[in-house]
Each structure stands twice: as C-alpha cells, then as structure tokens.
Design a protein around this nucleic acid. Structure first.
Lengths: 150, 150
DNA sequence: CATCAACTATTCACAGATTGAACTGTTCAC
DNA sequence: GTGAACAGTTCAATCTGTGAATAGTTGATG
C-alpha cells in the first residue's frame, strides 16, 4: 500500500504546497520593502549563525553565488546587513545583520508567530505541538546536512 | 514569551524553508520535462478534484489567471491535460488529466513517497505519523478555504 | 428584450528573478 | 613560484509571473 502513493496524498507534496503558499504570504508582506522571501531567508540564516559568508547562503538556500551577490547588494543598500572582508581569508565576505535587519526580522517574526497561532488553533494544542517539533527537527537536520557538503 | 518569536524559530518560517526546498527538488526532477512545480500542482489539483477550471487553479495556487493560461497551454502541448469548454457555461474550460498526465503524477508520486520515507526515517515512526496527520489536516483546510472565497 | 456588469479565458508587453560564463583577486598545495 | 581551487563579482540571456486590454459569455435589472 505504500506504493499507492497518489502524489497529492504525500506529505512531501503537502509540505511543498503549504510551504510555497506561506512563502507567498511573506512575499506579500515584504512587497512594500522591495524584498523577497529569499532576502528574508538570507537575513535569518545569518542572524541564526547558520551562514557567515555569501557562499554559505548559496549552499544553504541552493541558489547561485551570483544571485547571492544581488541579494546581499540589496540588503546592504537598505542597511539590513553589513559586508566586511574576513581578515583570515580575504576572499570571503563576512555578513552581519544590522539593527535595522534585526528589526525587520522581528517584524516578520511577529507575522510568523501569528501564523503559528493559527496553525495551533487549527490543529489543536497536541497535534500543533507535534508539528512544531517535527519541523524543528527537520530544519535542524537540513541545516546540518548543508553545513559542509555541496 | 510568545512575543519573543525569533523568526527562524517559528514553524511558519520552517514550513516555508522546508517547503520551498522541497519544491526545488521537484523542480530538479522535472527539469528534463521543461515543467515546473506549478505545472505539477496544477495537474495534482485537477486530478484530485480540487480544481475543475483554470479559474479554480488561479484561486487555489494564488497565481494570476494569465499565468494559468500558460501553464495549461504547456501541459496541453505535452498531452498531460485536456481542455474542453464547459457546456453548462461556455466561458469555462474544464480541465482533465490525460493518461500521460497520470503517468507523470505517478512518477512524481514515487519521488514524493521516497521523500516521505526519508522523513519517517528521520523523525521516527511516531513523530513522522504526527507530521503526516498535521499536514493532511492543514492541506484539507487550505483547499476548503479556497473553494469559494477569492 | 435591451443593457450593462460580472465572469472566464486569452494576449501582450513588461518588470523581476535566476542562471551560467567569464573574470578578478586570494589562498593553498606542490 | 606556478597552478589549481576558492569567494565574490559582472554581465548577458532566459525564464517567471503580473497587470492591462480584449473577446466572448452569462445573468441581472430595468
């Protein structure tokens, strides 16, 4: 019966649909800033310590290095991040989130928290908690997997 | 403490990241066909009975009607769907998935099932099952919410 | 039944996102 | 010291996705 996997009945598909739909929500709320969910992802990865350089971002988010240049350019223009050369390895740019960046993250964090509440409401406390736990674990594993291997 | 919602620690954010990452996986596997995850979503929504017309697709996936035209064009060119006028309302195009379309869905379903297995493996049977249940409920609610309201 | 607004799909031109190739400067191995 | 690999950048080209304008269809309203 495992082989009777109608695509729409899989968790993978549902995760994709729900995730991209949520990305649309974030995109809508970011529209006025001229930023995209990828900009937000960049900001979050840096603040969280998962990424230090542009190369890290490219690997974690699976986008081309040239796109990361653009994302970083635009974030820098808006004073949301700073780029400075790594003294240890002058090829690298070390990224840091500015106060403005943290403030944007907080704002989007509030939106995310509202969504979380809606999820909890829809699923009930118990199942909602399980979802949180599962997602946290998967996210952790994803970040772990992408730390080194390309 | 609910207000100390660091964006990267929210389920909403994780759902977005994991979902879009998964969409990349699907996109990669679809690359040879020249299709995108949105094409796949269209196919799935139609087969599943959530969508009958192009307008339904636009509403469910939150994309512009003009994009749906293109998606449908390309799916039709590849004989994955059929478009025929609704006799009851000749403005509408009723969409149906062809055998070829079902075959592609099955292929992608196999990929999705493999991902599901990996999820189950990573989370353990119990938590994996909870994730499945939560996603199924959320997906159902999403489809329900988008049946009528724009 | 004539009119007009809403609905569904379409076309088109455009803005924005993303990539790959070519290049610069830097580091590291030999 | 030479050359390969690495981090970042630039540029041109492609692909996605949208909004505006349009056509045909339906339904409501007078």
């Amino acid at each position: 019966m495992a082989t009777n996997s109608s695509l729409p009945e899989t968790s993978a598909f549902r995760l994709m649909v729900l995730g991209t739909d949520l990305a649309n929500d974030f995109a809508e709320h970011l529209r006025e800033t001229g930023l995209t969910p990828k900009h937000l992802g960049t900001l979050a990865m840096v603040e969280q310590g998962f990424a230090r350089t542009q190369d890290d971002i490219a690997r974690l988010m699976r986008v081309s290095p040239s796109l990361v240049v653009r994302l970083a350019d635009q974030l820098e223009q808006r004073d949301l991040i700073e780029r400075r050369r790594d003294p240890e390895n002058r090829r690298k740019h070390i990224l840091t989130v500015t106060d403005g960046g943290k403030s944007l993250l907080a704002e989007m964090g509030a939106l995310a928290a509202a969504v979380d509440n809606e999820l909890a409401e829809r699923l009930g406390r118990r199942l909602g908690g399980q979802l949180d736990e599962a997602l946290a674990q998967l996210m952790g594993k994803l970040m772990e997997d992408r730390q080194r291997p390309r």
